[in-house]
């Protein structure tokens, strides 16, 4: 039992820290950049990704002995696409505004390399229980990076958090950096984020 807990802990620490899908493996960058201009949309998007990675990892692991190696990729894609359709229909029914703003990026969860990568690298060679945990961990590792980036982009770009005009409420004069909500701001923001995190990791490595 303790061996399993140790494994679970290792999965979580690697997904959130050293092997984080976004800043260490540079996967799933498309949606990292595209949806992070509004915090609320980002939260919905990350929940969709967590749902998809967790369940697709679980399903691939369950079926891993029955999928022929030749059509492995195709089968994985179909499993992922099934869950993405569930997310898409759910958003269309309950959150139609956000679904419209996210546009094609919900569908593009299918080609998010993180999900496919986890299915290939982990679910094919591990049991369903651990795969479920692994999918959840990488989903969370992806989500928190996006949420941090979205927080700063919305704050600097529109002066709001969750639509609440924070600078106005605090009486701080603030001119919106409109570049932050546009494409170049996204690239710069992610680059700075990677720079800071890598700097910290490099320092730790030097110290040890």
């Amino acid at each position: 039992m303790s061996a399993t807990t140790a494994k679970v802990r290792k999965i979580f620490t690697s997904a959130i820290g050293t092997d984080n899908p976004v800043f260490a493996q540079i996967l799933g960058i498309c949606s990292t950049l595209a949806v992070t201009n509004v915090f609320k949309n980002t939260l919905v998007m990350t929940l969709g990704v967590v749902f998809t990675t967790t369940l697709s990892n679980f399903t691939v692991s369950l079926l891993r002995k029955h999928i022929p190696a030749r059509v492995r990729m195709m089968a994985e894609t179909l499993i992922i696409a099934t869950y993405v359709i569930i997310v898409d229909l759910f958003l269309k029914a309950y959150l139609p505004d956000i679904s419209k703003q996210l546009g094609p990026y919900v569908g593009l969860i299918i080609t998010n390399c993180i999900i496919m990568g986890r299915a290939e690298a982990f679910a094919l060679s591990n049991g369903p229980g651990l795969s479920l945990v692994d999918g959840l961990a990488s989903g969370i590792g992806y989500s928190y990076v996006l949420l941090i980036i979205a927080f700063f982009r919305e704050l600097m770009g529109s002066g709001t958090i969750w639509g609440f005009k924070i600078f106005e409420a605090l009486n701080i004069p603030w001119t919106n950096w409109s570049i932050m909500v546009m494409a170049p701001g996204a690239f710069f923001m992610l680059a700075v984020f990677i720079w800071i995190v890598k700097g910290v990791i490099l320092k730790e490595q030097e110290a040890s």
Binding site: P184, F187, L202
Partner: peptide
């Protein structure tokens, strides 16, 4: 290039500049 920016970091910065140019 600063050590932490090597690889993906600097590429993203350049992509950002290209996006600015294309704007």
């Amino acid at each position: 290039v600063p050590k932490g920016l090597e690889g993906a970091g600097i590429t993203l910065v350049i992509t950002g500049m290209m996006a600015l140019a294309f704007m």
